[in-house]
Design a protein around this nucleic acid. Structure first.
Lengths: 218, 218
DNA sequence: TAGATTGTTAATCGATTAACAATC
DNA sequence: TAGATTGTTAATCGATTAACAATC
């Protein structure tokens, strides 16, 4: 059984997938039935070959010279690939402004993702709901992760609590962590992690701006 | 005048810089005066050579065999590099949950970053303040960007408004955009952009988890 | 048919990692 | 001194881009 598809898709490709899906849906809504890689690439500011490779990685839909790819099949395969059908659930620990924003974020639905509960240590918000999701005491984090059979944990708590929360999540059976706390977390090898550091992103953008400004002698 | 330092630092390096700064400060607070690249690398889960290169790119502090780098100078240079001294200001358009979270985010201070105002179209919140920052009518976006002499714009509005907001920002003199709307924005060449797609990140993490699960036959 | 568009192989580019001599 | 640690050059790795024959 020859394996034509690469076993794993690059992280960068993976990040682009939701953008394709979004744009393909838009094109379909506009009444198109086909799309060429070149067109899609131009719209999204990507390289045409990159687009073709990305599409080939997740879909068996063959492109057609002159007409491009059939939108319908592409959308179906892309949705399938991204797991939009079998929903993926997560919990979020740290219900400050950011946690609250994620609990209320509507775009997750489109990819079959949902945050089903929040955890915090503040008695004032434990027991309340945000966007219809209940907020539990963080002390019950590992217990409830197990009970909910959730495998994705999101950390939006202050840095000093992040490692403890992380440990509790791992104990509760969490296999993937989306970490917004600006610290390096120690995790077992079988748990995957994505670090999302907003301050670092902002600072990096600001530095790029300054570098460019200097380069131009401004 | 030979140019020893590379003109530009890679995007990835740039993203790591705030993490170094954070960790270096922590070490200093713990009473250390020096740190070795190997130690720092282990703490942050990076490669030692990578750390040395990164440090060398922003600091003239020479490492010392046996003792490592002097913390004090390193922190100073890193802070200088990241522009923590001359504060950088931004405005945010779209004061929903996410915009609100960014307006209230405390970690930005540490890098001399601040969001000075918000913009929205909802009459109910125009004129109110969030974390002491006033919310203006989005119709005044370009006017006020110019008046405030702000060069960084953050877009946290729904996707369908993003391009218009972006255009208004560019018109107002914005030179760097941090875009949270899940769409590709068309901008002039002299404006830099960082796209932050939360749904895409979440979806990518979820896909990685699923891929791994399949690989292990779970 | 002619030409737009695909899919694939090879070249390029950039970042990370390995190797190692220099040095405090 | 001996050995930990640096700084740098070369090798590796991975992703993007270029080139081009195949095809509807």
């Amino acid at each position: 059984m020859p394996n034509t598809k690469p076993l794993s898709i690059s992280r960068q490709s993976l990040q682009r997938m939701p953008l394709y899906l979004e744009h393909l849906k838009k094109l379909r809504a506009d009444g198109s039935s086909h799309v060429s890689a070149a067109f899609l690439a131009a719209e999204l500011g990507l390289h045409p070959v990159q687009v073709r490779k990305d599409l080939a990685a997740v879909s068996k839909v063959d492109g057609n010279p002159r007409v491009g790819f059939a939108l319908e099949g592409l959308i179906e395969d892309m949705a399938e690939f991204l797991g939009c059908k079998n929903a993926h659930e997560a919990v979020v620990a740290g219900v400050g402004n950011l946690g609250r924003a994620l609990l209320s974020y509507k775009n997750f639905d489109r990819y079959g993702l949902s945050i089903i509960a929040g955890f915090d240590s503040d008695p004032a918000i434990i027991g309340t709901t945000v966007h219809d999701k209940e907020i539990f005491n963080v002390s019950r984090l590992s217990e409830l992760c197990g009970r909910f059979a959730v495998h994705i944990g999101i950390i939006t708590a202050p840095a000093q609590f992040a490692q403890d929360i992380c440990d509790a999540m791992v104990l509760g059976g969490i296999k993937a962590i989306w970490n917004f706390a600006p610290v390096h977390l120690n995790i077992p090898d079988d748990v995957i992690i994505t670090n999302e550091n907003l301050a670092a992103s902002f600072a990096a953008l600001s530095s790029r701006l300054r570098q460019r400004g200097e380069g131009l002698g401004v």
